[in-house]
Deep mutational scan, measured.
Amino acid sequence: YDEVAAQGEVVRKLKAEKSPKAKINEAVECLLSLKAQYKEKTGKEYIPGQPP
């Protein structure tokens, strides 16, 4: 859960800094992968601010 939240912060920071699109896309792919792992382990969708 904490990893997903941390990666979400990374994506937000990159977007706020107007980073190159390729770098943002890479961070988003990582975030989506973490969300998929979270769902696989818990059986639930990741919802920000609602730990399992």
Rank of each mutant, 00 (worst) to 15 (best):
V4I: 08
V4Y: 02
E29T: 10
Y1C: 01
L31A: 09
Q7E: 03
N25A: 11
E40W: 04
A27Q: 05
Y38C: 01
L32I: 10
L14K: 08
Q50N: 08
A6L: 15
E3W: 00
E45F: 01
V11Y: 00
A6W: 04
Q50D: 08
Q7Y: 00
G8F: 15
K21T: 12
L32S: 13
K35S: 05
C30Y: 12
T42K: 05
P48Q: 11
V28R: 09
C30G: 08
E26T: 06
K39G: 02
P52W: 07
Q7F: 00
E45P: 09
E45T: 08
T42N: 14
P52A: 07
K15R: 09
C30A: 12
K44E: 04
P48M: 09
R12D: 04
K21H: 11
K15N: 06
N25H: 08
S33Y: 07
D2F: 15
T42C: 08
Y46W: 13
V11W: 02
L14S: 05
K35L: 02
A5R: 09
G49Y: 07
L14N: 04
Y1M: 14
V28C: 06
Q50V: 12
Q37T: 05
Q50R: 11
V11N: 01
K41Y: 04
Y38M: 03
Q50T: 10
A36P: 02
E40F: 04
P51E: 11
V11Q: 00
A36H: 13
K18T: 06
P20L: 05
K13T: 02
A36G: 04
C30V: 12
L32E: 14
E45I: 07
L14A: 05
Y46V: 05
K15L: 09
Y38W: 02
Q7P: 00
E29K: 14
Q7G: 02
L31T: 05
Q7C: 00
P48E: 14
A22W: 07
G43C: 03
P20K: 09
K35T: 02
I24G: 02
N25P: 01
E9I: 05
Q7I: 00
K18I: 04
S33Q: 14
K15G: 07
A5N: 07
L31C: 02
I24E: 08
E29L: 05
E29R: 12
Y1Q: 00
N25Q: 10
K41H: 11
E29W: 00
C30I: 09
E3Y: 05
K35G: 02
E3L: 10
Y1V: 11
Y1N: 04
Y38E: 02
K15M: 13
G49E: 14
E40A: 11
Y38F: 09
I47T: 12
Q7A: 15
N25G: 08
E45G: 03
A27N: 03
S33K: 15
A22L: 09
Q37G: 08
A6S: 10
K13E: 01
E3S: 08
A6K: 15
A6C: 02
Q50L: 11
P20H: 08
R12P: 01
P48G: 10
K41R: 12
A36S: 12
